[in-house]
């Protein structure tokens, strides 16, 4: 497994032989194929971080992230979400399928 990108809380790996990716979430490491990775990207980038600063829109400042066809569930706080957004965008850049770090809103 080779390291593609690391952020404060998470690490992103590529496993060449398996043609898969791994994200170490701290409490567990999950495998993803590209489709699942794109779905993760969509979910993470769709999260409105502004809502975290409005107690009407997001009362507790948490996000529930359901990944890989409901196989994994994570509850992340504001800082973790920001960090994960960063990781996702940077990884796609490093892998050469995103042109810029600032991804258009999804």
């Amino acid at each position: 497994m080779e390291l593609i990108c690391q952020s404060k809380y998470y690490t992103f790996y590529q496993a060449e032989k398996e043609r898969r990716f791994y994200i170490d979430f701290g409490q567990k490491t999950i495998p993803l194929n590209l489709c699942q990775l794109i779905a993760l990207r969509h979910k993470v980038l769709s999260i409105s971080i502004e809502d975290h600063f409005d107690s009407d829109l997001n009362k507790h400042g948490f996000e529930v992230l359901l990944l890989c066809n409901k196989e994994h569930l994570f509850v992340l706080n504001t800082l973790e979400i920001l960090d994960l957004k960063e990781l996702v965008q940077h990884s796609f850049c490093v892998m050469g399928i995103a042109a810029t770090r600032q991804t258009a809103s999804v």
Binding site: E16, R19, R41, M95, G96, A98, T100, T103, A104
Partner: peptide, 14 residues
């Protein structure tokens, strides 16, 4: 590094 992502996707995510 092998470009697994690029090999599976022929357009940019943007």
């Amino acid at each position: 590094m092998k470009d697994i992502a690029r090999q599976s996707m022929s357009i940019k995510v943007e």
